[in-house]
Each structure stands twice: as C-alpha cells, then as structure tokens.
Design a protein around this nucleic acid. Sequence first.
RNA 1: GGCCAGUUGGUCAAGCGGCUAAGACGUCGCCCUCUCACGGCGAAAACAGGGGUUCGAUUCCCCUACUGGCUGCCA
Length: 487
Amino acid sequence: MKVRTRYAPSPTGKMHVGNLRTALYEFLIAKHESGDFILRIEDTDQERYVEGAVDIIYRTMEKTGLIHDEGPDKDKGFGPYVQSERVRTGLYLEYAKQLVEKGEAYYCFCDKERLAGLKSVVSEEDGEAKEITKYDKHCLNLSREEVEQNLAAGRSYVIRQNVPTTGTTTFTDAIYGEITVENEELDDMILIKSDGFPTYNFANVIDDHLMGITHVVRGNEYLSSTPKYTRLYHAFGWDEPVYIHCPLITNEEHKKLAKRSGHSSFEDLLEQGFVTEAIVNFIALLGWSPSGNEEIFSLDDLIREFDYHNISKSPAVFDMQKLKWMNSEYIKKMDNEAYYAEAMPYIDKVVTKDCDKKAIADLVKTRIETFCDIAGLIDFFEQLPEYDTAMFTHKKMKTDAASSLLVLKELLPRFEELNDYSIPAIESLLMGYISEKGIKNGQGLWPVRTAVSGKQSTPGGAYEIMSILGKEESLRRIRIAIDKLEI
RNA sequence: GGCCAGUUGGUCAAGCGGCUAAGACGUCGCCCUCUCACGGCGAAAACAGGGGUUCGAUUCCCCUACUGGCUGCCA
C-alpha cells in the first residue's frame, strides 16, 4: 500500500517549531517510501482563526522544501482539503449520524449551566485549583422521540461520542508500543459542536480515513486522546493508521516550548539570523537520531536516512547552542554567491561608506554563528571606536606603549609613501620592516592592527583591515594612535 | 486528584543481557597564529533510587521519586 501522510495544521499564527518538525517527519516518512504528502488545513475553530496564517503555512513549507503532493492548491480528488469547506458538504454530520444510529454517539442538549454544575474542583500539589468535568451521559437517556422533539424545536445540540463505562481500549503506537486505558477514564467527547462544525478530534479521524492516510505523526500531547480515536475507527469499521507520537520539544527549563521563549517559531529563528537548511537539519535531530554519527543532513539526505522507528520517547530540550553551531557549519559551507546575498544586508546596515564589502564578508564568514553576529564584529570599519592605549600593551606579543609608538612612528612614513593598499603590498611592507628590525611578527603587527581597528580583537589581521580601510583612513588611524601614545 | 507516558554526562543522543557505556554541542587544556575565529589534538563529564529475574543487568519485571502531557463545544 502506498504511504500517504498528512500535515494538518490549524491556521492560528506562526509556524511553531514543534509543528514544523511534525510536518518534516510526515514529509520524510512519505518521501522515504516514495509516498504522498498531503496538506490539510484544519480550521474548524473559527474563534482561533488568524488571518494570514494559511499564507505563513504555505510560505514556510515552500521555503523549507516540504512540498506537498495534495492540498488546497493541488486537489487530487480527495478534497476539499480545507475543513471549513468540507463542513459545507455536510459530510461530518452524516458520519456523526451514522454513529448515532449505531449507538456509538448521541445528541446532547445540555446547556452551559448544567455542564458547569458537573465540574468538580481538585487541588493540585502545587496548590493550584483545577476544574475537572466528566460528562454524566445525561442525554444518553433521552428517548428517540424526545430527541426528535428537541431537534424539531430547534434546540441547540452537540453530538457526543458514547464511550462504554466498562472495559478497556487498546491501541498501538509505533514509538510507545501498546497502550491500554480503562474506558471509564474516557470522557464522552464532543464530535459535532453546536455551531455545526466538527471538533478536531472527530474531523481528524474522518478526514484521515477519507484521504487514505496511512501514517499519522503528531505530538505526544495527543497520546491521551488516541484511545477515543481508536474507538471511532472501530465504530466505523475502519482500519487505523500507524500512529507515530513524537516526544515534546521543550525549552531550557524543560517546559513545553512557548511563544515567549523567543525561538519557538520558524519566523523567530529566521529573524535571529539562522539559515533555513540549518533549522530543518537541527529540528530533524530533535527527537530522532540517524544510524551513523553524521549530523549534517540536507533534506535529500534526510529523506534517504529517515526511519521513524528511531524516533525517541523522551522530550528534547531545544538547545540554542547546538543550533548556533550547526548554523555556523552551514554558513561556512555556503557558496560565495549565496553567502554574499545573505550577509550583505547585515553588512550594509553597519558599514555605510564605500569599500570592499565582499572582503568584509569573507573575513567574517568563519567567525559568525548567525548573521546577526556580523554587526558586532565589523562596527570598527565604519568608525574608529574610543579605545585606551593600554591595549597596545600585550605581554605575549611583547609589546607596550613605548614599543608600539616607535613601531608606528617608523611605519607611518612608509605607509605614506605606499600607494598600493592591496593585501600583498601591505604584507610585504610590514614583513619587510619586521625582518629589517629583527623583531617578532607580533611586535610589529599588534600595534598596527590595534591602531587601525581600535579593538582588542578583530576579524582578520592588520593587512586585511588596512586593505579594506584604504590609504587615507589607515593613515588617519595610525596618526591618531601616535597622538594618543605620545601624551 | 485521576489517567497516560518518560528518566544514559549541562544539552542532543547511541546502546536493545556480558562494552574501558559511542558520537555531537558546550566547557577546559594544548598546537597553529599579528588578535578573534577556522582547523588539528586531547581532557573532564552520565546509566534517578530501591527491590527482584539471571551466572551476569544501562538493557527484562515491580515499587518509589522526579519530569512532562491529558483531563475544553482548542488543536
């Protein structure tokens, strides 16, 4: 049987990394087996619907390369692929009625007030009070006539699943194995809401079946409601898909990754200067591990390597440090054209004067983890910072204020005469001077680099910096240094 | 509170009855070096606790602890 997976997001805002990982795994499972990957929009909750969220989903999937074979924009006959459109066909209600006929579901006319009366308050260990509701099957006792009357009278209703109060329900998850729960623990969940829309819990089962989905990937948080889905499949006489529940992704405090973490969404990460491929690579490895020791994977590599059986059971902390490392690996491997295109906007923001910005980009390439790091490294090209002459004293370089002053004063006229400020020309001038004086490289180069940058550490050395600054600015900075040192 | 699940170094993780318990990030040290990086080499660092089963448990079973999830006309 052909593998068919689906990514079924609710359009409620940004692309959470947990959702992105789910989409990625669904995509990889399908593509690993040359199967179909379907996009279905689950917008059954109009209250949470966010304008533009669907576009974010499209954009993210395209940018990350998770291209779907079927979806709202690529109807292959299983559509519509948007649940609100499916509601209009009346299909969910039809299926719900089938269950009512079978005694697996029932109409419920209870109002909010009665439901509220069912709540029992329980106090958690941390002192917080929690309300718990379990429906008491009150409306299950309604006779067929009473139901008909209520319906005819236009009373507001929902349709609930009828779960037996005895026995157990068992399902199998590909990661967690066999899980059995007491039916007593299962609430009669709502299938059709009073606004006529199906709940996620119901629509999800119907659509997965109708669309021929073979593997369902979703977060661990659905593990507890899966028995209810199993009952639904059984009630209809349908085969269940393979369930693949993924461990949660948490923040450093081991709490579910929340919006305020600042790196919870794909968009946040892009803003923070991360490369799309690195994000995808990193997320793939959160909760899944390949058979070998390799960690850098392109999407194609992942398709080849991915085996969902190796998904782990325990939650994974979203480790920014490792993402940064991985990002730096991707930056180092980028070809020049792509790298310049990405880096240039960040450089332009800091360096406004005319100079060889590609040279700046080159200097910074092996020194950044994210593109946002660029600004802090190259600010001195734009403007010589205020600095203290103590910086000229360096024990290991065997330099101090006096020796530096001497070096700079001797070098100044030579640089004034020099017209070719290319790296090789500057290098030969400096190295010529150093060997002529019989001093160590550091003794000659440290003062120059310091003078010309005004910083303790810089990307690149004296040659590179002077070459980028050009003759005029280099001389100006050397003279400033001399002035400072002479006081 | 109830139910479900999880627990290998700080983090991601391999392991699937017998190993000096991989690898990666991070940390630290050394080398390279005009600084910072890059690169190279190396070090420290882990099986939550207690019972079983077994000749032998990180691996299997039970209990405890801790963590997380669910307990919505949200998904």
